Each structure stands twice: as structure tokens, then as C-alpha cells.
Simulated assay, not measured.
Amino acid sequence: MFQLCYASQSTSTAENLLQDLRNILTEARNANTQHQVSGVLCYAEGYFFQCLQGDE
């Protein structure tokens, strides 16, 4: 099992943030299922923290 964690800063404007988060969630669910990856994505105060787990 391989694990990758990282943090990044959002570039979304306040007006677009909610829709951007919905788009990320939709894309991640599809890609993670297709690639048999699981993980968690957290967003707070303009930053993302994500951990992914799956076969390398």
C-alpha cells in the first residue's frame, strides 16, 4: 500500500469556492473509483490537505 499526503492553497475566489469544491469532489470520486484509490480531502481557511492511499 502506498500513501501520499500533501497540502496546497486554493486559488478559488470566494464567489466560486462552493462550486469549485463540488467540482473537485465529483472529479475525485470518479478518478478514485477508477484507480482504486481511497483518501480524504480537507479544506479550511483557504488551504487543502489531502491523503491518498492505494497501490503505487
Rank of each mutant, 00 (worst) to 15 (best):
M1S: 08
M1I: 05
F2H: 13
Q3I: 13
L4F: 12
C5N: 09
C5P: 00
Y6E: 07
Y6S: 08
A7N: 10
S8T: 04
S8E: 02
S8A: 04
Q9C: 08
T11M: 11
S12I: 01
S12Y: 05
T13D: 12
A14L: 14
E15G: 13
E15S: 15
L17Q: 02
L18K: 12
L18N: 14
Q19R: 14
Q19G: 10
Q19M: 13
D20S: 15
R22I: 14
R22P: 00
R22W: 07
I24N: 01
L25R: 15
L25I: 07
A28F: 07
R29E: 06
R29D: 02
N30Y: 07
N30F: 08
T33K: 15
H35E: 06
V37W: 01
V37I: 13
V37Y: 00
S38Y: 08
V40T: 09
V40L: 08
L41A: 05
Y43L: 08
Y43G: 05
A44C: 09
E45L: 06
G46K: 01
G46C: 01
Y47T: 07
F48V: 04
F48Y: 15
F49K: 04
F49E: 09
F49A: 13
F49T: 07
C51D: 04
L52M: 05
Q53R: 02
G54T: 00
D55N: 03
E56P: 11
E56H: 12
